[in-house]
Design a protein around this nucleic acid. Structure first.
Lengths: 212, 212
DNA sequence: GAGTCTGTCAACAGGGTGTCGAGAAACGGC
DNA sequence: GCCGTTTCTCGACACCCTGTTGACAGACTC
């Protein structure tokens, strides 16, 4: 639904103006979300910021929510790409491989903090945002569960509750802990400590055997 | 209009009428939050439901948020009480004790589902709700950290990351996993499975030693 | 140079919040 | 029993926000 832009030199401006406006709205949104909360950014702010009137905004996007979804899509795509990169170039040790995956997913959300926090906020009220978000989580859960099962199959990890159940708990933990760390909430971990602490919980949960 | 109050002759009625109205608003709120989301309940709905006009609502509560906070306080108080009960009457085995605590905290939030989900929704935009919520979490984190340190001191649990960091990760995990379970989100655990799965992660994280 | 897209926006309709000030109702003193 | 004070009630208002409508302007198309 993009990529076909940059149509060389000439006068094929027909779509350019519209694309520029669209990009201006997205840029304005990401900038304003860095300054205040999603709820405090009105459609009028996005329009004005992009040099448009409010009704004109609606020519480009059906709602403020749609702008956020567009921004979120980019971050999600990046997180998936980073994760795939990490998996494609695995560390030699088991712990290092899990660290790679957790860190790779966290990184894009951290570097697009404004979008991440806005999405978390909007998820509370927007069905569409929630669906996108849960879709992302679903995929990470699936992949985690498959990895855990593989580790069990090769005898590296002990049995226990269904791998999928552990994967659900661990992935939601990451989401919540990273959110509170990024948002600077209390109680919360320092953003720089978070991955290591999460990794400890993952390692002990996946590989820790029976208890005393 | 209805109820007619008919409080008979308890003479110190001075505050009764007001208290009744207040309770009617709280009851209406909890009922409506069982039917639709916090955002979809307007102040007018609360007022009408309690047999009042909208401006009169503001005589009793400064905002819709204040109503939610009042409801939330009750649930939080119950969770704290249940937790204290559980601690006061400990199971004989270690795992049983942790199960008691996790289950005791979860139970009131589950039985007041409407308030729990509304608070989670409102937390995204309301500073006051977030503060209450994080205050609750802070206390659970403190208590968890102290327990973990006690287990380490008596040699039952191995060393590792600071107890407080683990406590933060584990408590946020519980919050998020229980929320998704209660809300029926996907991916999510069945509400009846959640405590056992969480318990597994806690046990392995707290007592699981070094890894392969 | 007429027709048709792509943009553009003033004005409107509708729904929400919170406030103000004029009162009605209940009570307590006398 | 009447009277002032406190408690309670609500119509009307001021605001802010969303999303739509309809008239209209510029550019490219043939």
């Amino acid at each position: 639904m993009s990529e076909s832009t940059a149509v060389a030199r000439g006068r094929r401006t027909s779509r350019n103006r519209g694309d520029d406006r669209e990009r201006a709205i997205l840029d304005t949104a990401e900038r304003l979300l860095g300054e205040r909360s999603y709820a405090d950014v009105a459609v009028d702010d996005l329009a004005r910021g992009a040099g448009l009137s409010r009704p004109t905004f609606y020519f480009y996007f059906p709602s403020k929510e749609a702008v956020l979804l567009a921004l979120l899509d980019r971050v999600v795509a990046e997180a998936r790409a980073r994760r795939d990169e990490a998996v494609a170039d695995p560390a030699p040790d088991v712990e290092g491989r899990w660290r790679q995956v957790i860190g790779a997913i966290a990184q894009p959300f951290r570097s697009h903090l404004a979008v991440t926090l806005a999405a978390a906020e909007a998820r509370a009220t927007s069905v569409a945002v929630r669906e996108v978000w849960n879709g992302v989580m679903e995929r990470f859960v699936d992949e985690t569960a498959a990895q855990v099962e593989a580790e069990r199959a090769r005898g590296a990890a002990p049995d226990g509750p269904p791998a999928r159940q552990l994967a659900i708990a661990l992935n939601w933990m990451n989401e919540r802990v990273l959110h509170s760390a990024f948002a600077g909430e209390q109680p919360g971990l320092a953003a720089d400590d978070a991955v290591e602490v999460l990794l400890t919980v993952w390692m002990r949960t996946i590989y820790g055997g029976r208890l005393p």
